[in-house]
Simulated scan of single mutants.
Amino acid sequence: MAKVLCVGSAVIDFVFHLETLPRQPRKYGTEEAAVVGGGCAANAAVAVARLGGRAVLGARVGDDRIGDMILADLEAEGVDTTRVTRNAGGRSSFSSVYIDARGERQIVNFRGTGLVLDTSWFGDLDGLDAVLTDTRRVEAAIDALKLARARGVPGIVDGEEPIDPEILAQASHVAFSLQGLRSLLPDTGLEEALAALAREHDIWAAVTDGEKGVWYTTPRGVAHVPAYPVRAVDTLGAGDIWHGAFALGLAEGQSEAEAVVFANATAALKCMQPGGREGCPDRAAVEGFLARHAQTGAR
């Protein structure tokens, strides 16, 4: 069973489903709402666990009710939270999330206060097969990626803006969102930007763009893998789950191309289910989906 360290944010999402996203300063009502776990690293860790890997989470929460909720939900998913930093007097992060009838979302996030992520325990981890980090805590991300380099395992970055260049310098793999990529090279074409960043930082680089699929670098240039055509009902957490699946794929020895396809299938299945990361599929569901939708090569 492959072991993945996921470093970054862990939150609680208060999710409201509406016909259209709010645009006016007035009250809105809904018959459908949920309280679910969220956060880039936490969502990725849940994906790793559901897909059959061992997920260790490096995150920070307060010693408040929200922190209790965050940890209880992750522990129920089988994520190892024993190394999560609990900050005395800290206020944990939470988000208000609106999702419209098309599955698109609008998020307001309180990032928390009085929170510090302890990384002193990173070197004590054994049997590590990959490291995945978001970009929210630069020092912690750099420490995590340095650990990956020291262990000779993939050091993967979920490339959401803002992106500190030192994070890229320490990574082996960076999968950008389109906004993350544009934040670095706003006036450069997508394929040209990927190739330039891959050369500059000596990394494998990709960009995910929802229903348009994934572009990634190869020795022969930039390849494209289409997204699976599905009816999306909820995209909340889909990108984070994509990164968790991709990291697990690399941890298990899949090639980058194979891991992209595996991650695309996982994210597609998630988008077909409501409830944020509660809609993340298990390994059997992903393998069944892949068997029904053979997609073996980049285009």
Rank of each mutant, 00 (worst) to 15 (best):
M1T: 13
M1P: 13
V4E: 05
G8P: 02
D13L: 10
D13F: 02
V15W: 05
V15C: 07
L18N: 08
T20V: 12
Q24D: 15
Q24V: 14
Q24T: 15
K27W: 07
T30H: 09
A33C: 10
V35C: 10
G38H: 06
C40Q: 13
A45D: 06
V46I: 15
V46K: 01
V48P: 07
R50T: 02
G58A: 15
A59M: 03
D63H: 07
R65A: 13
R65N: 05
G67M: 00
L71T: 04
D73K: 10
L74F: 11
V79N: 07
D80M: 09
D80Q: 11
R83P: 00
R83C: 00
R83T: 10
R86L: 02
G90L: 08
S92N: 10
S93Y: 04
F94I: 03
S96H: 09
S96Q: 12
S96D: 08
I99C: 05
D100Q: 06
G103I: 11
R105A: 09
I107E: 09
V108Q: 06
G112R: 09
S120C: 05
W121C: 03
F122D: 00
L125H: 13
G127V: 09
G127T: 06
L128H: 09
L128D: 03
R136M: 12
V138K: 14
V138C: 05
E139M: 02
I142H: 01
A144K: 02
L145T: 05
R151T: 09
P154S: 03
I156F: 00
V157C: 01
G159T: 04
P162M: 10
D164N: 15
P165M: 09
L168Q: 01
V174Q: 04
S177C: 06
S177E: 04
S177Q: 05
L178Q: 12
R182Q: 15
R182T: 14
L185M: 13
T188A: 08
T188H: 09
E191S: 14
E192C: 03
L194R: 07
D202M: 00
T208G: 13
G210T: 08
K212R: 15
T217C: 10
R220K: 12
Y228E: 00
A232R: 01
D234G: 02
G237I: 03
D240Q: 06
D240L: 08
G244Y: 11
L250A: 09
E252P: 00
G253A: 08
V260E: 02
V261M: 07
V261S: 07
F262H: 14
A265M: 10
M272Q: 15
Q273T: 14
Q273D: 08
Q273V: 04
G276H: 09
R277W: 11
C280Y: 06
D282Q: 09
R283M: 05
A284G: 11
V286D: 10
V286M: 13
V286W: 07
F289E: 10
F289M: 12
G297A: 15
R299A: 15
